[in-house]
Design a binder for these strands. Structure first.
Lengths: 224, 224
DNA sequence: ACCTGAACACCGTTCAAGT
DNA sequence: ACCTGAACACCGTTCAAGT
């Protein structure tokens, strides 16, 4: 289903890498509103070359975020072999949050392109895949309540990251603190009252991709 | 300390109100990136008039957000008289989240102007004031763990709102669901392991306002 | 005092001309 | 094929001219 990696000319490939590195460095230092001109200059190429490699500034950001997500996926796969399933899950979340703190507001505008950019979507589905496995293991071990899904967890963590970036001058470890609270929420037995709504699934996300289509007969055979 | 409300000419006051209403409507419908020209047009004034009333587009957004915060403060004060302190606190959070869901991504760019805009800051301090009272009452009643502060709670809720706006097409009630998880986190006894870091205070926020000042002797008599 | 809209500065993006 | 930078379109903001 995924297209083959179009092989680039040697210099083009090098320019692409330089652009990614320059953008990553500048975004990390000064946030997402650094100009494309400055990025191209730091990469040592013309502005047009940036748009030859990336359809828009948002796509450039998406490419960087997708790379991060691939790293996260790889790390999550490693943790699947850990002894303690609970520690594996929460250690995974800790590392994700740790990376976020370092490089400023990279998650900042992800929300906007979350669903519209295919590269981000597939990378995020990878992350959700491992997260789901880590979660199921932790639930089987009794370390995490059974009524939450991987998408629940990812959204809570994303929220913690975003809220923390606004206050990072305040306390660098505040995200860790709030992650501990998320952990408490996930560790608690679903005793008191049940959660409102139901755990969102990947199918829900796919369905959310086409809101302008008012076909009205979508609930036919999709109620599995 | 707060300056007196400069009394405006009748037509100027009316224009200001019209601009706020037009902006609120358009932002709610199509997000924060509607142009100032369209806002002015909908309000029936020239573009220059917008900038006479609000120093910048960000200040216009801040004025709207500040109004919302005043409403939230008023609602919180009412809830201080409620019978069940726990229900009062979580009901308050529910209403905040409910309003957020309705009008799109209003919290979206708040993070950026959080600390730089004085109007937002004082309005937020008001909210934090009531939230603190609601929280202390709930803690005294044993409904909420003692090791969290009002700023912790506000940041968690803000995170939930932001993460939910990205997925609002998915499930309108997803923020409510995650708020239930936050409730579980706050209701849990601080038994397992203690939270990392310490509860952020209003003094921490004020201190975060002046990061470029490296005076180094700020911990003199401020350690109260 | 306040309002207006043309003019300005500053982005992201495109494209004709080069190699 | 790929690169370049001038040119374009589109923002937010300013300001001289009006009332």
């Amino acid at each position: 289903m995924a297209g083959e990696e179009k092989t680039l000319r040697a210099d083009a490939e090098r320019n692409r890498r330089r652009l990614l590195e320059a953008a990553e460095a500048l975004f990390g230092e000064r946030g997402l509103d650094v100009g494309v001109g400055e990025i191209a200059q730091r990469a040592g190429v013309g502005r047009g070359t940036l748009f030859r490699n990336f359809a828009s500034k948002e796509h450039l950001i998406a490419a960087i975020v997708a790379e991060r997500m691939h790293h996260a996926t790889a790390r999550g796969l490693e943790l699947l072999d850990a002894d303690d399933p609970g520690e594996a899950l929460f250690g995974f979340l800790d590392e994700i949050v740790g990376r976020q703190q370092m490089d400023r507001a990279l998650f900042e505008s992800v929300g906007d392109i979350y669903l519209s950019n295919e590269e981000i979507r597939s990378a995020q589905n990878e992350v959700l895949g491992v997260l789901d496995q880590l979660l199921v293991r932790a639930q089987a071990a009794g370390a995490v309540r059974g009524d939450v899904g991987a998408l629940d967890v990812l959204m809570l963590v994303k929220g913690v990251c975003q809220a923390a970036t606004a206050f990072q001058h305040l306390d660098a470890d505040i995200a860790k603190r709030h992650l501990d609270l998320i952990r408490a929420a996930l560790s608690a037995p679903p005793s008191a009252q049940p959660l409102r709504g139901r755990a969102p699934t990947l199918e829900d996300m796919d369905r959310a991709l086409t809101p302008p289509a008012a076909h009205a007969d979508a609930a036919e055979h999709a109620s599995a």
